[in-house]
Design a protein around this nucleic acid. Structure first.
Lengths: 144, 144
DNA sequence: CCCTTGCCTTCGTGTTGCTCGAAGGTGATA
DNA sequence: TATCACCTTCGAGCAACACGAAGGCAAGGG
């Protein structure tokens, strides 16, 4: 059995957030002891992990709550739940692509700065800051 | 030259968000025409792409503003900017890992549901919903 | 010439999801 | 007994949009 503090560390959430989620009913298996303290067992932690991932997919707390309720209703809602997860899966894959782009962008940017620092790039005092970095817009030659 | 609507489509941001960012000074190169309409050239779009990525790394609008201002100050701030980007790069890499985990989780979940739907998994009416899915917590054998 | 369409503008309020701090209870240790 | 180190609830505050109202400008059609 684990306390709020423990699971917050384990899942890298703030204690506030963990309480917030449990209070909203997103972790149905969480119990209280005689002193009214939230106690998380392994199942609760599993729920919380799922909630965290769904949240990261961009689902609202309200929608996650609906999904959790569907889970609690049992087998009869299995198709509905499948559709939801398939949707979130698609979103997760899109996010994965974006994350790759983002990481690539930051790396190129860092390398660009490093080149300037090391004097590899000729003195570029007038800062066309964002030039020659992104692949999305056609490059424009500087006249100077 | 592009309007708010055009760049919002191009970068997959809402028009509200594009206006919000420009009004906050995150896109310094954006101009207005005689009718006070925001006009984005290629440079503005490049800025906006950078802003978008920094935002996705979790930087606050305020911090991005500070960074943009550093950019505008020119070469003298290059080391400071380099540090910032290195930090965001590290964050981006962490996000990439998380995105992979998330995508994997959703895929396993979807497959699990599919197994249930197809009757591959023996009738599991009592829903230990989150079991045998996540790799983070030690598995507990069901007694039933 | 006017009117509709469709874009743009500003402004001000609403929403979500935390985030923080206050105020206080419990229980083990010095 | 007192001081930790936890836990609790509650309520206010905040960032980053999201949205809608109200209105301006320009082009095209009747």
């Amino acid at each position: 059995m684990h306390t709020v503090k423990e699971v917050s560390k384990l899942l890298d959430l703030t204690e506030h957030t963990v309480r917030f989620y449990t209070d909203k009913g997103l972790v149905p298996s969480v119990q209280r002891d005689k002193n009214n303290i939230r106690l998380f067992d392994e199942e609760s932690i599993s729920w919380l992990i799922g909630v965290k991932y769904l949240k990261q997919c961009g689902m609202s707390v309200e929608d996650i709550k609906s999904y959790v309720d569907l889970c609690l209703e049992g087998r009869s809602t299995i198709h509905e739940r499948y559709e939801i997860i398939m949707k979130q899966k698609a979103i997760a894959l899109t996010q994965l692509k974006e994350a790759k782009q983002r990481a690539k962008y930051m790396e190129e940017k860092a390398n660009h700065y490093l080149d300037i620092i090391n004097g590899v790039v000729p003195d570029d005092t007038n800062p066309k800051e964002w030039e020659s970095i992104n692949s999305n817009s056609p490059q424009k030659k500087r006249t100077s």
